[in-house]
């Protein structure tokens, strides 16, 4: 494990911030341009993971394990969220025979 942790030395903190920003924005773009509810849901997962990576990087930077515990809680929350969300998608499919979010546009009003 020594040589793996040596790989960490030298990567600036703001490169981790940049990576998380890019992944998070890809998730936002995915939510905006797709119509399939499941793909929108996967984009939300992408955003959650970007935040997880940033929390871990800052936890290492500040030498504080609380950040990594928070990532653990976010993962537990994501598991609950996925179960509920997919149940809702299955119910939408049963009622409208599709997972197209444009069919549900009455929710806008």
């Amino acid at each position: 494990m020594e040589n793996v942790t040596q790989a960490l030395q030298g990567v600036p903190l703001n490169h981790y911030i940049l990576l998380s920003i890019i992944i998070f924005s890809i998730g936002v773009i995915g939510v905006m341009i797709r119509r399939n509810a499941i793909v929108i849901f996967m984009s939300v997962e992408l955003m959650l993971n970007a935040v997880n990576l940033l929390l871990t990087a800052f936890s290492v930077h500040h030498n504080d394990p609380s950040g990594q515990v928070f990532v653990f809680f976010i993962m537990a929350l994501a598991a609950a969220e996925v179960a509920i969300g997919l149940a809702i998608i299955v119910m939408i499919y049963r009622n409208t025979n599709s997972t197209d979010v444009n069919i549900l546009n009455k929710l806008k009003w």
Binding site: L8, Q9, L13, I17, S25, N63
Partner: peptide, 29 residues
């Protein structure tokens, strides 16, 4: 989405956290 990236990168530049990440204690995680 590009506008979001630009805004966030701009705010990250102001933060100016360019010091390299160093693992202070080996058994942190």
């Amino acid at each position: 989405g590009m506008c979001l990236i630009i805004t966030l990168v701009g705010s990250a530049r102001v933060l100016n956290a360019s010091e390299p990440l160093v693992l202070q204690t080996q058994d942190l995680g």
